[in-house]
């Protein structure tokens, strides 16, 4: 197997694994830029995956090939509603945001498994029939090297995820809304003085993070697992959280980190069929993303600064 063949093998699968991570990590960026820590990403992804699969199974006959996309919308709405719970707790009720996030994670897994057992009378759902289809992009897939790397047997969801990352960058850094969002996360009192409604901005940010995490979860379930059970998401939300930090709370950085983690994940799965990587014990590939995140945080890859007011409830009139 030549080096290029190896690349043709790994890169598409890396992008494939990265797509959900990108979306969820971008969701995390929105929430944390506004000053709300969102450990609940994992739970929001779980709800997204569950509702996505459920909707797909129930309405596959009605919507045909469009079902996966419409399922994404259903998943988005469900996760958005769950994220409201986190928003109310951490913004209005001044709860410890990490604890509230932990509660969201527990609740999401328990609630979706409870419903799975209620509806299907077993531990996991059936497999979906309508899935996202792989296809070759016309013309572009004929380009040598780049074609097979990026445009052959791809999912539309991957392009969607990368597009969202760029849109998020534009919204956060180039619009008045983004400026207010960042201001609320850095110095809420100053923003409040300038007439920005801190609570409203934070609610919107958390809801965006919920929506994106829901879509990410549904994409993961509808491209990778194709059913829903207790181990469907299994830490992908925390991986996205790591990508967000590794990307230094920047949408494009988060995208890059998510792509890299996707690469690491696909290595640990497809690596057994690649000569050089076969030699490395699987466990090193499995822990690679986590170890790298720890190194990144310890400052070996440049200092990463969280938004200043991240994790602190804003109490009007308090110095």
């Amino acid at each position: 197997m030549s080096f290029l063949d190896v690349l043709y093998f790994i890169i598409p699968s890396a992008i494939f694994y990265a797509a959900p991570l990108i979306l969820v990590a971008i969701g995390g960026v929105f929430s944390e830029k506004s000053g709300v820590v969102n450990i609940g990403l994992e739970g929001l992804m779980v709800i997204g995956a569950f509702v996505g699969i459920l909707f797909n199974l129930l309405y596959a006959d009605t919507f045909g090939a469009a079902t996966p996309w419409i399922s994404l919308i259903a998943a988005m709405v469900a996760a958005l509603l769950l994220s409201l719970l986190h928003a109310v707790a951490s913004i209005s009720f001044r709860a410890d945001q990490v604890v509230s996030g932990v509660a969201i994670n527990l609740l999401a897994v328990a609630l979706s498994l409870y419903l799975v057992k209620r509806i299907f009378d077993k531990g996991q759902t059936d497999f979906i029939t309508e899935r996202f289809a792989r296809y070759n992009v016309p013309f572009l897939s004929d380009i040598p090297v780049i074609g097979p790397l990026f445009f052959t047997s791809v999912y539309n969801t991957s392009f969607f995820a990368i597009g969202v990352a760029f849109v998020a960058w534009f919204v956060i850094y180039k619009t008045p809304f983004g400026l207010r969002l960042r201001a609320v996360g850095e110095h809420p009192m100053a923003a409040d003085t300038m007439g920005v409604n801190v609570a409203r901005m934070r609610y919107i940010a958390v809801m965006i993070s919920g929506a994106l995490a829901g879509i990410g979860g549904a994409i993961y379930a509808q491209t990778i697992t194709n059913d829903f059970g207790h181990a469907t998401i299994n830490g992908q939300g925390f991986m996205a959280l790591a990508a967000m930090i590794f990307g230094k709370w920047h949408p494009l950085g988060a995208m890059g980190a998510a792509l890299f983690f996707g690469f690491a994940q696909s290595l640990s799965i497809v690596g057994s069929s690649i000569p050089i990587i076969q030699e490395i014990p699987n466990v090193f590939l499995l822990i690679l993303p986590y170890v790298l995140t720890i190194f990144a945080l310890a400052g070996f890859i440049g200092r990463a600064n969280a938004p200043l007011a991240n994790g602190k409830p804003y109490i009007k009139g308090q110095r």
Binding site: F93, V99, L106, V109
Partner: peptide, 22 residues
């Protein structure tokens, strides 16, 4: 009844303890 109902109860308890302020 699926055992997950108890996990839901536990999650809700954490949620309310965290929201002790209200």
């Amino acid at each position: 009844i699926p055992i997950e109902i108890v996990e839901i109860v536990i999650a809700v308890i954490i949620f309310f303890v965290a929201s002790g302020y209200i």
